[in-house]
Design a protein around this nucleic acid. Structure first.
Lengths: 231, 231
DNA sequence: TGTTTGAATGCAGTCGGTGCACCGATTGGG
DNA sequence: CCCAATCGGTGCACCGACTGCATTCAAACA
């Protein structure tokens, strides 16, 4: 009865892990609330820790910087994104696929999320954090493109092409998100259309995202990611 | 004889201004040397100030952050860039013009500059600073495009289009610069070619840059900018 | 010459972030 | 069921970036 791991029966997270996640979550929400109400600069890490009911030292056990607390689920989203991208072998045109996924990812935009986004973009340090996260997306896209083009390992030219393409795409997405924040332009279609025109791809409509099957790479997948979300 | 500013006769900078520039320069070079020899993190602001022979407090009179000292001439370069862009009225296709200018700007790449660039890109905080400066270029390009398109003031769609275009371009340039840093790919042609393909523009060769005439907007120009430089 | 300006300074203090030693609860093994 | 290892959380001392404020001194100017 001690926990032999039967295959197919997933062993739940330990109590320690649960507690850990709880404090992390508490810190993240406390941070967000304080950022929203008092402003980013006016909020000290001590404030956040106090509100979350933990020691200040603990904060840095969960987030490397104050700014990072504003993007608590970056890695989850990134994983989700890569996951949506899926297997490069399966797509005839990797570029089109990336555009599709980007459009889809951007299509879920709630108004509270918009407020949060506006808040972030108004603070230099958080914009930096955002740009930093973009680099991860860029890397993911570039790698996907290279694999999709059958260039792996990649030549110098192919790497340049892939990165340039990825960066250009990210750039368009940034613009769309900015427009979303400032003028309430729906970022999904906006980015999608511009990307289509730029890369000469045919019309691409958002894909179905509910219950996407995990990619078949055998790794211990953490279950199906929930619906996509804005960035 | 008090200072009636005769037109055509430019009044030299005051002694104070010269001193100021001197200390600023001393700080910048001290910073760069220390960053290069000891690494960015290992270098304290006090070190920089000491090497520049100036009080630590003075550092922050010239640069807002430690990282900013690594990009002491950002505004000069930006001005130069805008200046090269020139009058939007004069160009049939603003996009082509931007590409031309970008290519030209990137074409001047020295090997010491490359070392410096590699150094920068290896440090997260300096990459952030770099990304921050990119935002200024993006804004400049976007505005130029809008004016060139005759969209001023701009509609929401036009703004999105302009910003998306500008961001995409900057993205390609980033990729080219990265390739330059990692694989010694000449960034000017690399970025130019990709941009040409992406935006469907005809072949664009680097423009003549020596002694470009100042833009005729009457403002007290600080004289002709010297030859263009990498970013 | 005398007054004003403003760059540079010194000082005290805030805040973000780290290394370290330690505590105490969960965990897993016997 | 108990013991030992583990590991998240804590307190403390500390560093370095950055700021506000009052002061100084040389350049600018009338």
């Amino acid at each position: 009865m001690s926990g032999a791991v039967e295959p197919g029966r997933r062993r739940g997270p330990t109590q320690r892990e649960l507690n850990r996640r709880a404090t992390r979550r508490a810190l993240a929400t406390a941070a967000l609330e304080l950022f929203a109400s008092n402003g980013y600069e006016a909020t000290t890490v001590d404030d956040i820790a106090a509100r979350a009911g933990v020691s200040p030292r603990t904060f840095f056990l969960h987030f490397p910087t104050k700014a990072a607390a504003a993007y608590p689920d970056h890695d989850v989203r990134l994983r989700r994104f890569v996951h949506l991208l899926g297997d490069p072998e399966s797509t005839p045109d990797p570029v089109a696929r990336v555009i599709l996924v980007l459009r889809t990812t951007l299509d879920a935009s709630s108004s509270t999320r918009r407020l949060r986004y506006q808040l972030m973009m108004g603070v230099d340090e958080l914009r930096d954090e955002d740009a930093r996260s973009d680099r991860d997306y860029e890397a993911a896209i570039a790698e996907f493109l290279l694999r999709g083009w059958g260039e792996w390992p990649a030549s110098v030219e192919a790497r340049l092409r892939a990165r340039a393409t990825a960066n250009a795409m990210i750039g368009v997405v940034r613009a769309a998100l900015l427009a979303w924040g400032e003028d309430d332009v729906d970022p999904g279609p906006a980015a999608g259309d511009v990307l289509d025109r730029l890369f000469g791809v045919g019309i691409s409509r958002p894909m179905e995202i509910r219950r996407a099957r995990p990619v078949a790479d055998g790794a211990a997948g953490r279950g199906d990611p929930p619906a996509a979300d804005v960035r």
